[in-house]
Every structure is written in C-alpha cells, then in structure tokens.
Simulated assay, not measured.
Amino acid sequence: MDLPENRFKRDLRAGRQQIGLWCSLPSAYAAEAVAGSGFDWLLLDTEHSPGDPLTVLPQLQAVAPYPVAPVVRPVSNDAVLIKRFLDLGAQTLLIPYVQDADEARAAVAATRYPPEGIRGVSSLTRATRFGRVQGYAKRAADEICLLVQVETRAALDRLEEIAGVEGVDGVFVGPGDLAASLGHAGEMGHPEVVAAVEEAITRTRAAGKPAGVLTPDPAFARRCIELGTTFTAVALDIGVLARGTEAVARQFVRS
C-alpha cells in the first residue's frame, strides 16, 4: 500500500488557490455534511472548539471519501499533540501562535522522525494504514504539510525569520488574535488591523512562502486573494449555522 499523496501540499506549492471552510463543530456528521460542499480544504479546529484527537479521528474518517483536504489545528504548538494527530493520519497541520523562528523549528521537529526531528515512532497507526504503507517512516515528511500561524505584533516583527525556517510550508495570518495584539480586540475591520494583515500577506509572499488567512468578509477575502493568499478560509461552519438559522427565524418569528 502506498503513502497517500497530500494534494493540498502539492497545490499550495504550485500556487493554486485553495478555498477553505473553518470547522469548529467537533462532529463527524457535521464534517461529512460540508465535505461535499465544494471547498478545497476543511480546517478541523481543536484550539477554539471542544475538539480533541478523539473527535478529530472520526472527522478524518468521515471526510476521507470526499475530494477535500482536511487540515487539523492542534490547541498549541505541542510535540505530543502533533504526534497524536499525525498518527491519526492528518497530513496537514496548522500550528497556532508561533512567535519566532525557534518555535517554528520546534513545530517542524515535531513532524519529523529522528534524526531530523523528535516525532515518536509507531508502525501500527492509522497514518501507516496499520503497518501496510511500506517505508512510511522514511517518506512521511514528504507528504506532511506544516502551516504556522503568525498572530501577534511580536510575530509580525519576525515574520521573515519564521517563514524562512526549512520545513514550514506556509504562513497563516490570524486576524482575531492579531487585532487583540494591536489593541483592537474584536475589531478585525479596524484600519490598523487590516493594514497589518495585508502587509503580512505581502511579506510572506515576498519571503517565498504561501500565505493564508481566515475572513468571513467576502470583499476582504477577495482583497487577500489579490494580494497573494493561496489558502484562504472564507467562512466558519458555526457562523453559517448561527447566522443562517437567524435569517430563517426572522422570516417567521415575531420579535
């Protein structure tokens, strides 16, 4: 049995735009419902959701038959959590709150087996198809895509250093935490925040790495794509559910 190809990584390297949906609902049923909606990738979140490895596993299984790439966000840049998600078969990870090149290098090391890294070895995991993928340990890194989040003023100051770390496949700008770091918590549309996001995208591209962002604002999403993002999340499942049901209720329920 061959090692599955990470098409998301290939498309990112080729510069093909990847449109994504943020999945905060820790449900395999919900993940499968949106897996066929036409997005290129789904972010399975465990940082700002109740999700964990035991909810991500059935989500990965549920979306596997669909032509969409699952991206998993651990709750932190933690080698143990990263190991667990990789063993579950996740091939693309988005690591939050990476502040400098050393933290980026630590994330890379967590995805590599020794001697290049510190990932623990087990030959009987879902990632190895339970021992059926020949040479998995030697080839796994070829199909692992590591994305890091830059989401504070301090991280922006070191963006080129972070982007330049070997093994970092893309840099994601987190507007929510960045807004808070700049003194504008909850104000993603503040001019200073917008300017910082736009500058980060431009600098990431100039550094030779793919840039990503999350914004449910269609106009700003298009602006980010124009500036050069190649993995762009344009909605959140929980937001679609909450705002969509509110819109239906307004048609029939008296205030």
Results as ranks from 00 to 15, higher is better:
Ser49Tyr: 05
Gln134Glu: 15
Ala107Asp: 04
Gly135Ser: 08
Leu81Glu: 14
Arg129Trp: 00
Ile82His: 06
Val63Arg: 02
Gly38Phe: 03
Ala127Ser: 07
Pro115Gly: 01
Ile144Ser: 06
Ala62Gly: 10
Ala35Gly: 01
Lys83Ser: 10
Glu32Asp: 05
Val75Glu: 12
Gln149Asn: 13
Gly20Leu: 06
Val80Trp: 11
Gly131Ile: 01
Lys138Thr: 12
Leu25Asp: 11
Tyr66Pro: 05
Glu47Ile: 09
Asp52Glu: 14
Arg129Leu: 13
Ala154Thr: 14
Pro26Asn: 12
Pro115Asn: 02
Gln149Trp: 07
Glu143Ala: 09
Pro114Ser: 06
Pro53Phe: 06
Ser122Ile: 01
Val56Thr: 12
Trp22Ile: 08
Ile95Arg: 09
Pro115Ser: 02
Cys145Met: 07
Tyr97Gly: 00
Lys83Asn: 12
Ala28Ser: 14
Arg153Asn: 08
Thr46Pro: 00
Leu81Ile: 10
Asn77Met: 10
Ala141Lys: 08
Thr92Ile: 08
Pro65Tyr: 05
Ala154Asp: 15
Phe130Gln: 11
Val148Phe: 07
Val68Ser: 09
Tyr113Gly: 07
Arg126Met: 02
Pro65Glu: 00
Asn77Tyr: 05
Thr125Ile: 01
Leu81Lys: 09
Pro65Lys: 09
Ala79Trp: 12
Gln99Phe: 01
Gly51Thr: 06
Gln91Phe: 00
Pro58Glu: 05
Asp78Asn: 15
Leu43Cys: 08
Pro65Thr: 04
Val34Met: 04
Ala140Glu: 02
Gln134Ile: 07
Gly117Gln: 05
Ala101Val: 11
Glu151Phe: 07
Ile118Gly: 00
Ala104Glu: 03
Leu94Gln: 10
Phe130Met: 14
Phe85Arg: 00
Val108Phe: 05
Asp102Glu: 15
Asp45Ala: 06
Arg153Ala: 15
Gly51Cys: 05
Leu60Gln: 08
Asp100Gln: 10
Ala101Lys: 11
Ala109His: 04
Tyr113Asn: 10
Leu124Cys: 01
Gly131Tyr: 03
Pro26Ser: 11
Gly36Arg: 11
Glu47Thr: 01
Thr55Trp: 06
Glu103Arg: 14
Pro67Lys: 08
Ser76Arg: 15
Val72Ala: 05
Ser49Gly: 09
Lys138Pro: 00
Gly117Val: 06
Ile82Thr: 15
Ala62Arg: 08
Glu151Thr: 13
Ala90Glu: 08
Ala33Asp: 01
Ala35Gln: 03
Leu21Ala: 11
Ala62Ser: 08
Phe39Ser: 02
Phe39Trp: 12
Pro58Val: 09
Val63Cys: 03
Asp78Thr: 10
Pro70Lys: 08
Ala79Val: 13
Val72Gln: 09
Asp102Ser: 14
Ser76Phe: 09
Arg73Gly: 06
